[in-house]
Structure formats: structure tokens, C-alpha cells
Nucleic acid binder design. Structure first.
Length: 466
DNA sequence: AATTTAACCAACCGCCAGAGA
DNA sequence: ATCTCTGGCGGTTGGTTAAAT
């Protein structure tokens, strides 16, 4: 739906209602002639809505953007980069406040935005994250590349209302039961107030992956700054090697998300640090649990699946061609994690081609292991030229040597709890024969043993923040 | 065919935090 | 320490479209 088809809402700006048959240009004209002194906008907004031009006060436009306005905004950002949004109006002549320009850019104009319906995986993540963390739309957007917080928010409200109307609990049973206390049947009963098991949520039930994670540690410095390094949910998703000493520049000028320092969340962290399966939403408790405390027990692990935003793809995976245009002001390459400590493995998802370039499990290895040198370099060489295209990736992985990426040899790696409809999908399945061809023909070949022989034994305790 | 309802979506608002003067 | 500016976030509104009646 184009923005120009929208009418402005009656938010205090007294403007004549338009008929829906107006052309965009007509809409723009009409909008431009409205507003003014009759505004009931409060103080904070008034400053946004009026600017001084040639000594006089000009009322800024509101409402849907026209194509021409979009072009002006895009052109300005191409020339000057993002930021300083209030200057956009002054320099470009756009009769839009800085906030409006920023919103328009981030939600509609910036490169890499993913349009279209939400996938089941996206929906799962949204519901799960909301269950755990509440209305952190921007955080969710960070986990759903190409999606905007606004889009996610709209989706959430629509879906949650729909479920409520249908007499269903807001959260699917699979989520509530998953995060209920172990052994707490009461809690489970309360939460599991859902009448039916539907296909749409059946994949919430996860199992522990077989991935050997002894050498994969959690390194808070490598987290997107958006996330709380104390957050076990996040820690669970972003296992990285403690050998990573440097802190990469995560977000470039296109980064949607600020360098937030999310405060410690006693609700989630207390629960999660005691075991991934055990949090109870709304359970507030002071926690003195050390962030370095390993998580054992029922916690399930998966390959760290960094759901980078489009702007972060090249940052974290270090291999994709950025979809962004080469604006002069944003040409400065972002720093990727050192290859010595990190490998980024693109994982195409056969049933969800759109996700193929989004799911970037980052496989970090311990440099103490026998994985240094040419094998890593060659893997990097292999991956650097990869395009975020499923077919391309599948093809190019054909040349991957088993020895070069031990993590890939582990079956039933849970690539992404939320982003893959096939929970038990192994990389073998993903890469098919091209991958299996790398393995010994002996049917009794034990990959785990093989890993052990390579000094990559499979541990249980994983999170060691060192 | 007309009307009503639901779903989707863009855009706005207030609030707030951080940076800088 | 205080104020102002800027920009980010979450909540909300209401227009448009699709589906249902």
C-alpha cells in the first residue's frame, strides 16, 4: 500500500478531509495548505511542525508522503548521509519535520527493508520475544532483518487482538509451556490455556542440538550493543569465542539501532540464568547471579544465529555484499570480528529463500584448537564471494572441505530456534549431498568421534564468559 | 450490490535519554 | 547543574483495503 493512498488521521491537526480520489500531487497541495494556527498540537510537537523560512514561520506538512518528497529525502541522504534530521528540512527544502523524515527513511525508504507478510518463523520470534521481554519492538526489529519496529508492532497488535477475539490466550501454548517452571504443573496449567495445537506453532518445541560448544563462549563485547549481555536469552543466541579481543563497530550510519545499554532485566535474566527453560514472565526478583555463571541443565543450545539487520550483514558475516548503496558518507567499512576468532557461516534455508541471507550462525572457534591457518583462511575465501542467494550459497558450499569447518559436520545443528521451520533440520539436509560428499563413506562414521579426534570434543557446559 | 467488519498499515504523538552548550 | 536540542522508542490513531455478511 503506498503511503500516498493514506489519509491523514485526525490527530489535532485541523485539516479538511480529503476525498480518496485525490492524486498524490493534489493530496500534497491540499495538505500543504492546511494546518497552521489552529493546531492543537502540544508544545513538543509545535516545535517540530513549524520552521522559520525567510524570517517567517512555515507550517510543516504532515500526513502521507508523496513520491516527490521521498525522492527529495532519498537524494538528500545520498548526499549527506543519515542523521541530523532537522537539517534535512533546512537543506533539502522538504516541508517535513526531522522526526518525520527519520521515520519515513527508516520505515520505508532505507535499503534492505523486507516487505510482505511475516513468515511463521518471524511470527514465532515476535511472540516469543514479546512473551519474554514485552514490547521491545526495536529489539525485535534487530532480530528480524528488514523489518521495522513499527511493522512488528502493527503485526503484534493485529495478531494479539485477533487471538483475543478468538478467545485464545495471547501467547501460543507452545511458548507459555516452554517457559513455565519445570515441575510446576500449576504454572503450566495456567499458561497452557489453549484449546488446540495448531500447525502454526508446533515447531516451538525444541530440542538440544548436538553441536559441540565447548569452545564457544559468550563474549559480551561482540554482542550488538542493543542487547543486554546479561540476558541469558541473548547469551544463548550469541555464543562467541572469548578469544575475540576486539570489539567490532557494529552499526554503521545505516544502523537502525542506537548504542543502547539495555539495563539488566531481572524478569528475564533471573529466570534464564537459572535455566533457559525456566523463566516466568512477570516474575520480578532481585538477582545477584553472576553473569559469568554457566548455564547448565535444561538449557538448550543452538548455533549462534545472528540475525543481522541488512546493515549489519557485512559487519557480522563479513562476507555478504552490502545491499546498501555506496553513499559517500557511509562508505567507511564496518569492522568485522577478527577472522582468527570468528567464522560466519551462511545458512540457506531451503523452504524460506528470503531467509537465506539473514540467518548467519556465527561459528567461533577456539584458536587453541587445530583450526588455525589455511583451513580457516580458505573457508573465509570460500565464503567471501558468496551472494545472499540461496542457490548461490548452496552451490558454493560444494567446495567446502569438511575439515575446514567442524561445526558444519555436526548433525542436527539447530540453526535457529525461531527462524527455521524444520527444527531438526541438519546442515546435511540443508546442503545435501554436496556436504555429505565430504564425509567418509563409512556408514558407521561418527562425526562426534571425528570431532573429538580433532580436538573438538563435545561439552555440555557452554556459556563461560571467562 | 451494498454494507459491515476485520486486517493492515502509515504516520503521528508524547516521553525520554544522551550530548553538548 | 541546568537547559536545549536531537533523535529513538512505544503507544495510538485512523485511513484504506479485503473479506464477510
Amino acid at each position: 500500500m503506498s503511503s500516498t493512498s493514506k489519509q491523514n488521521r485526525g490527530d489535532g491537526c485541523k485539516r479538511a478531509k480529503r476525498s480518496r480520489s485525490l492524486l498524490p500531487e493534489e493530496e500534497a497541495d491540499q495538505r500543504g495548505n492546511t494546518g497552521g494556527g489552529e493546531d492543537t498540537l502540544k508544545k513538543d510537537s509545535e516545535a517540530d511542525q513549524r520552521v522559520n523560512v525567510d524570517g517567517g514561520e512555515v507550517t510543516l506538512k504532515k500526513g502521507p508522503w508523496t513520491k516527490k518528497e521521498d525522492e527529495i529525502l532519498v537524494d538528500h541522504i545520498k548526499k549527506h548521509g543519515e542523521g541530523n534530521w532537522n537539517a534535512v528540512q533546512k537543506e533539502s527544502g522538504l516541508a517535513r519535520c526531522g522526526k518525520s523524515c527519520r521515520l519515513r527513511w527508516f520505515n520505508h525508504l532505507r535499503p534492505g527493508l523486507k516487505k510482505g507478510s511475516f513468515t511463521a518463523e518471524e511470527e514465532r520470534l515476535i511472540f516469543e520475544y514479546h512473551f519474554l521481554k514485552g514490547s521491545k519492538w526495536a529489539h525485535m526489529a534487530a532480530l528480524l532483518p528488514g523489518r521495522t519496529d513499527n511493522e512488528i508492532k502493527n503485526f503484534w497488535y493485529t495478531r494479539s487482538k485477533k487471538r483475543q477475539r478468538a478467545g485464545l490466550p495471547i501467547y501460543p501454548n507452545e511458548i507459555t509451556s516452554k517457559y513455565s517452571f519445570n515441575g510446576s504443573q500449576e504454572s503450566a496449567d495456567i499458561l497452557a490455556n489453549e484449546s488446540s495445537q495448531s500447525d502454526e506453532t508446533e515447531n516451538f518445541n525444541m530440542d538440544i542440538t548436538d553441536l559441540d560448544l565447548k569452545d564457544y563462549k559468550f563474549c559480551p563485547d561482540m554482542l550488538p550493543p542493543f542487547f543486554d549481555s546479561q540476558d541469558a536469552w541473548i547469551r544463548h543466541r550469541y555464543l562467541i569465542s572469548s578469544s575475540s579481543a576486539s570489539v567490532p563497530e557494529v552499526f554503521d550510519q545505516y544502523g537502525q539501532y542506537p548504542m543502547l545499554s539495555t539495563p539488566f532485566d531481572p524478569i528475564l535474566d533471573t529466570n534464564l540464568l537459572h535455566g533457559y527453560d525456566n523463566p516466568i514472565p512477570g516474575f520480578h526478583a532481585a538477582s545477584n547471579i553472576s553473569s559469568s555463571e554457566p548455564i547448565y541443565g535444561s538449557m538448550s543450545f543452538e548455533l549462534p544465529s545472528f540475525q543481522s539487520s541488512p546493515t549489519q550483514q557485512c559487519t557480522w558475516s563479513g562476507m555478504y555484499v552490502s545491499p546498501l548503496p555506496s553513499f559517500e558518507s557511509v562508505d567507511t567499512p564496518v569492522q568485522a570480528p577478527p577472522i582468527e576468532s570468528c567464522l560466519s557461516v551462511p545458512v540457506p534455508v531451503p523452504d524460506s529463500p528470503d531467509w537465506s541471507h539473514l540467518i548467519d550462525p556465527i561459528v567461533y572457534y577456539n584458536s587453541d584448537q587445530n583450526l588455525e591457518g589455511t583451513s580457516i583462511d580458505s573457508l573465509q575465501a570460500n565464503t567471501e564471494s558468496m551472494a545472499p542467494n540461496e542457490a548461490d550459497i548452496s552451490t558454493q558450499w560444494n567446495g567446502l572441505d569438511y575439515d575446514q569447518c567442524p561445526a558444519l559436520s555436526t548433525r542436527q545443528i539447530n540453526i535457529s530456534r525461531w527462524f527455521h521451520s524444520e527444527i531438526e533440520t541438519s546442515l546435511d539436509d540443508i546442503y545435501g549431498d554436496a556436504f555429505n560428499d565430504q564425509l567418509p563413506a563409512d556408514s558407521s562414521f561418527d562425526k562426534e568421534d571425528n570431532l573429538n579426534q580433532k580436538g573438538l570434543a563435545l561439552p555440555n557446559a557452554v556459556l563461560d564468559s571467562g
